[in-house]
Design a protein around this nucleic acid. Sequence first.
DNA 1: AATGAATGAGCTTTCATTCAT
DNA 2: CATGAATGAAAGCTCATTCAT
Lengths: 219, 219, 219, 219
Amino acid sequence: MTAPRPPRATARRAVDADAEPEKRRAILHAAVRVFAEKGYHGCRIADVARAAGVAYGLVYHYFRNKDELLESVFAEQWTILINALKAIDEGPGTASDKIAGVCSFVLDVYKTAPTAVRVLILEVTRTPNALRAGSTPQTFATAVGILADLVRRGQERGELRSDLEPVVAAAAVLGALEMTLTGLVMGIVRPGPPSEDEIDRVKDQLVAMVLAGLRGQAR
Amino acid sequence: MTAPRPPRATARRAVDADAEPEKRRAILHAAVRVFAEKGYHGCRIADVARAAGVAYGLVYHYFRNKDELLESVFAEQWTILINALKAIDEGPGTASDKIAGVCSFVLDVYKTAPTAVRVLILEVTRTPNALRAGSTPQTFATAVGILADLVRRGQERGELRSDLEPVVAAAAVLGALEMTLTGLVMGIVRPGPPSEDEIDRVKDQLVAMVLAGLRGQAR
Amino acid sequence: MTAPRPPRATARRAVDADAEPEKRRAILHAAVRVFAEKGYHGCRIADVARAAGVAYGLVYHYFRNKDELLESVFAEQWTILINALKAIDEGPGTASDKIAGVCSFVLDVYKTAPTAVRVLILEVTRTPNALRAGSTPQTFATAVGILADLVRRGQERGELRSDLEPVVAAAAVLGALEMTLTGLVMGIVRPGPPSEDEIDRVKDQLVAMVLAGLRGQAR
Amino acid sequence: MTAPRPPRATARRAVDADAEPEKRRAILHAAVRVFAEKGYHGCRIADVARAAGVAYGLVYHYFRNKDELLESVFAEQWTILINALKAIDEGPGTASDKIAGVCSFVLDVYKTAPTAVRVLILEVTRTPNALRAGSTPQTFATAVGILADLVRRGQERGELRSDLEPVVAAAAVLGALEMTLTGLVMGIVRPGPPSEDEIDRVKDQLVAMVLAGLRGQAR
DNA sequence: AATGAATGAGCTTTCATTCAT
DNA sequence: CATGAATGAAAGCTCATTCAT
């Protein structure tokens, strides 16, 4: 999930000066879980603290208030996604490969960390304005932007149809991805939590559909 | 305190017996606006009452509680959408025509009632479970179901590619529609509120993309 | 205490449109008591509500928050004092009479409403800045100003010594009044709550001292 | 983390054994400032630590708790005042001289340490009971007592009028002193922080007024 | 001696809901 | 029908105090 960092020269001192305190991490992770479970307003600080196994007040030691905590949750999740998008973008392959890669990435992460993905994708656009002001809108735009660039270059190389505005195409792809996920999560595709196989099958269909949509038929 | 009002000239009362009271409508409409503006939890009864220009308590005269009010909002909006989908579904034309019709319908409604559309589409999956139990989940499933049927018949008639599960395809189409809308609303496609022309342009691109995706590659 | 309003033509309807709600008054009065008893920070909203015999939330129905409540307490008390000062100022008598009248007024009110006086006099200058910004500083200045005017006119008429700046003299008089009261309240003059006789005796001494100070000896 | 400091050249340490640690002083001084600025309840331990430039926990190393810290602040300030009063009391001169001396002392100290004086004089009577139990009430009474003694001896020597109870007179003098100071501090006498000259001018007027008040009219 | 993370009781504030008029 | 005052549970936030290092 996190890009592989270059190994340290010296292995000692895992805890360095600017390292993030362990409990801060615990709180952040707990927040993701609780948030995913209960949504923005259902997510009580007390719940987060309990889930993280820390005292109530410690949350306020690390985060100014509830909004800042949840902003941090978003920021972190988006950072992960955006880094992944960038890595895919800068990697090898055709535009089609990369778009397929994006779909795969999201659905693969979903397999291992469904709650995180739910938070990331489902809650983005429905958070209160106050929060959005913090970080989300730009980050959302950034994610769309990366995808749009990808589409644009595919168009320039004649790989993708050129009668679509890149941003529009990017948004549509992201939306298809999100709602498919939602359908999976909500048990609309098939009741109950989806199996890995099922996720893969859906992934293939999604990729096929998306690519066909972006290439368009010659007719 | 309240001055006695002059009695009505005509005995309309009997006729209005089962008509929806004007103030109930006002409350419902206000709820849509406030809900769209602030989201589920940010939407306070006091806000709705103020926006509707009625007294606080009247909301509780017409609705048992907040959840019932918001359920009603959803129910109303979904009913409109589902009726439209059914009408399109049952109307004439190929599956492609109908899918294009759905996209057109949603984006056209958006032109005249953007907030309502936002509520309808954006808030569906993020409302508390309590609410979903009420009406939303089924309705959401219903909408997806209609679209899926449409896809299925298209496949049976050889019009659409048959390597996609209808529900998956339906979800993807709905998602593409929703996120494109979101992009428009959030000013990601172009800053500022979109013009009608712009919405139409986006609509054409969306339809082209979606149909290509559902038909498969020309190869 | 409140200036007598012109009697209404019709005696009915004691509760008119702009009348202050009874419970609001109850809360305000309770606030004075609790505030006097426990000071600014010791004064909990819960205490005030209980003392007023109303529900917790009602306090917030009438006052935006704690600060606004306490500001109102101040404003009310000061209004009473300032009105009394003005009445004395505009009444008949020499400057000496009026100054004696002011001392008498304060100590007399103290006899009947000791807590109110304590709040008014003791807490004025020690309230957090936030509160002062609200109302107190101007009002305090106003009270001093009225006294200073009184002194000035006494000087102009040759009744009081003219080698004192009116504001300085006014502040000193007010201070002597306050601290004497404090001494009485804190049992420094004599242990236990002071009797009415005692208050009168102290009053006489105070007046004698203050007037002598403001007249100065010719020597 | 803290770099090792060079050892002292001279073995002063033994001598300093019972000396007050430098950081303790820093905390105490910081407490005076913060306390003066924000009042008892507005004064947070964190603020004091920050103002003193020491770690949070160190405050608790030197003081058992917040109350003890603030008691120490009071105790220190009052000790200074009471010592000065005693020195003046036991020194040479008439009662009038001594009373003038007290006024001068307070206003002179105010010139060099305005915040300390404010704390000392302004906060005395408004601190929570808990604190008073510690030290303040007695000390306050002590200060008044010394002044009262001074007045009594002046009366016995026929220097001051004898129709005043010494405690009452003492309280009034202290009050006049305090409120004049307050007026100065709050910019009621003249806007902005007072100049030294201004303080001196006010002092002369105050002394003249107080002495006239205590001597009574020659009649 | 010195540090600052960690704790949790206590208070303020919000807001859905009720109810008397 | 209509009103809005009244209620109180629930949640956010603060800050004195403790403790491991």
